[in-house]
Write a protein that binds this DNA or RNA. Sequence first.
DNA 1: GTGGGTGCAAACTGTTTGCACATCT
DNA 2: AGATGTGCAAACAGTTTGCACCCAC
Lengths: 147, 147
Amino acid sequence: MGEITLEDKKAELKEKGILLTIQRSAVLNFLHDNIYHPTAEEIYQSLRGIYPALSRATVYNTLDLFKQHGLIQEVTIERAKAHYDYKTEPHHHFLCHCCGRIYDVDVKKVPVEQEGRLDDHKIDEVWLYMRGTCATCLQERDDAGTP
Amino acid sequence: MGEITLEDKKAELKEKGILLTIQRSAVLNFLHDNIYHPTAEEIYQSLRGIYPALSRATVYNTLDLFKQHGLIQEVTIERAKAHYDYKTEPHHHFLCHCCGRIYDVDVKKVPVEQEGRLDDHKIDEVWLYMRGTCATCLQERDDAGTP
DNA sequence: GTGGGTGCAAACTGTTTGCACATCT
DNA sequence: AGATGTGCAAACAGTTTGCACCCAC
């Protein structure tokens, strides 16, 4: 239902003649299972437990490959660190200053017209990034504030 | 008219007891005069011509200080590199893939409600980043395409 | 003279690259 | 065998940090 399945994505790779190696499969599975927008380093650290020989370069290569083919998207809500998102359907992102978590925001809640032209520039991508304090952190702060 | 002047910003520093050194003044003037969203390195390279003893650390310190006090804003439309924006009034940004230029986009052209709450998260900042090909690059491409 | 500001160099983080080895067909 | 993918280590870019020196109050 709208969501592109893991099998769809794997099939797409096969179709394009791209080998689905153990490492690539592991990265894609990881992103599918961990939709909290992990960084390359987090992916590497987690998978290293299962595949001790895995190298950072392979993780970076793989993420690049998937991004090139539109299987995943790179979220640059934090400067310096890239986060990776299994979900490629249009949506927005919210970063909590407090806990660092990144939340998805439904595109219907902040309808930004993704028009093709603006000021005569051709628009290919539109990214809406929000930052603040997330509901969980606000709650924790409240709990701590009422002794 | 809406625009905060250089003098306003300098007065604000003075008010807060922050010394307006030669270096700080140079950085603020540079951002005022070069509204194309320069990077720290670009600022450093340009000012080094005038102040050969200037150090990168001072440029970074100064940019941080100004950002802390809301005199400028950091634009993170490119991963890895921070751009700095003299204009702190709400507006959006467009990055041209082709020439790397960053354009301001009037907030009225893409009205994004900067509401205080969304999904129970407290929203402090809203950034809309667009990427594509700018009018100038499209024009140049057209000109080249019609021999 | 003292406290904030500056400059230098080294450290650090995230990412990229070059190259030898391994793997799949 | 040939092409493609992997792992390692070194390189790289942008930024941050520690510390000695300097200068304005």
